Simulated scan of single mutants.
Amino acid sequence: MIPTFTNLRSQASYRKFALRNWPPIPGGKEKSIRISATMDNGCLVLEPDIAGDGMFVYYVSQDATYGFADAGVNWACSGPYSGCKFQVGRADLRIYASHIAREGGVDYSDKLIQYLPEAYPALDYTTGMGDTSIDTAQKLSATQVSKYLFAWWAGNFNTFSVTEITIYGNNMDSGRIMKVAEVDVN
């Protein structure tokens, strides 16, 4: 399944999200893994898959992480977000996705420029916190509010779309999907 806005909204029967069999953050400059998205018993599941058609870019505190889309990869995901930047673009004629930390008023975009000086972003999107009210979280017995962003591109990156999901749960990698929103990329 390609997690486009249309696909995520049309699957009204699922309202849960989970990262399954998730490996630790890889070493090296690139911090991404190849993944697939599936529906499992009412849950949108992302899991590592060397033949998958997606890529997940990890979050690292006080840093900018990125990954390049290999052949056969036509979408990327990253998270959890709570005010960070999601960037998708080209570098050295390859499509990349990046998760740029923003903590304590500090934007770590300079780290991405250091790692990928040839980066040309087509999207540079900053997420908001969403509804983080204690009342809402308590009603759901949730202790965490996080967002995950999905970018999907067609063909040779001529068109792309971005979808944001908001998760309420007791940890940052699973929970209940409370909102699916299309991000304006214009």
Score class of each variant (00 low, 15 high):
119 A>K: 09
170 N>W: 06
168 Y>C: 07
143 T>D: 07
151 A>T: 15
163 T>F: 05
107 D>I: 05
122 A>Y: 04
181 A>G: 06
106 V>A: 09
117 P>G: 01
166 T>W: 09
156 N>S: 13
147 K>H: 06
139 K>C: 15
108 Y>I: 06
115 Y>S: 03
103 E>Y: 05
130 G>E: 12
129 M>G: 13
129 M>T: 12
117 P>H: 01
103 E>N: 08
116 L>P: 01
181 A>F: 01
95 I>G: 03
142 A>R: 07
100 I>A: 00
161 S>I: 02
111 K>D: 09
95 I>H: 13
105 G>A: 09
117 P>A: 01
99 H>N: 05
139 K>D: 14
118 E>Y: 03
145 V>E: 06
117 P>K: 01
119 A>F: 03
175 G>P: 10
101 A>W: 11
159 T>Q: 14
127 T>Y: 06
176 R>M: 14
109 S>A: 13
157 F>M: 14
166 T>F: 00
170 N>F: 01
98 S>A: 10
168 Y>F: 05
137 A>G: 11
175 G>S: 14
133 S>M: 13
112 L>F: 09
155 G>T: 15
173 D>I: 14
161 S>D: 11
105 G>K: 08
145 V>G: 06
141 S>M: 13
134 I>A: 11
138 Q>T: 14
135 D>K: 13
151 A>M: 04
171 N>I: 09
181 A>C: 10
151 A>E: 01
172 M>Q: 10
100 I>C: 02
144 Q>A: 12
180 V>S: 07
118 E>M: 12
123 L>Y: 02
106 V>R: 15
175 G>T: 07
111 K>H: 10
170 N>M: 12
120 Y>R: 12
177 I>Q: 05
116 L>N: 06
165 I>G: 02
113 I>A: 11
144 Q>H: 14
155 G>D: 11
151 A>K: 07
105 G>R: 08
128 G>W: 04
119 A>R: 13
113 I>Q: 08
145 V>I: 14
143 T>Q: 09
142 A>V: 13
167 I>Y: 02
141 S>A: 11
101 A>Y: 04
170 N>E: 12
116 L>F: 05
125 Y>H: 15
107 D>V: 09
142 A>S: 13
158 N>L: 10
144 Q>F: 15
182 E>V: 09
118 E>Q: 14
161 S>C: 01
144 Q>P: 00
143 T>Y: 07
101 A>P: 02
132 T>C: 12
100 I>V: 15
173 D>R: 09
161 S>F: 02
147 K>L: 04
151 A>F: 08
102 R>S: 09
179 K>N: 11
158 N>H: 10
101 A>Q: 08
109 S>R: 04
179 K>A: 11
120 Y>L: 08
130 G>Q: 13
131 D>F: 07
105 G>F: 03
147 K>E: 05
106 V>C: 04
182 E>H: 07
178 M>I: 09
155 G>R: 12
159 T>F: 11
162 V>M: 13
98 S>N: 01
138 Q>C: 14
97 A>W: 05
125 Y>Q: 03
178 M>H: 04
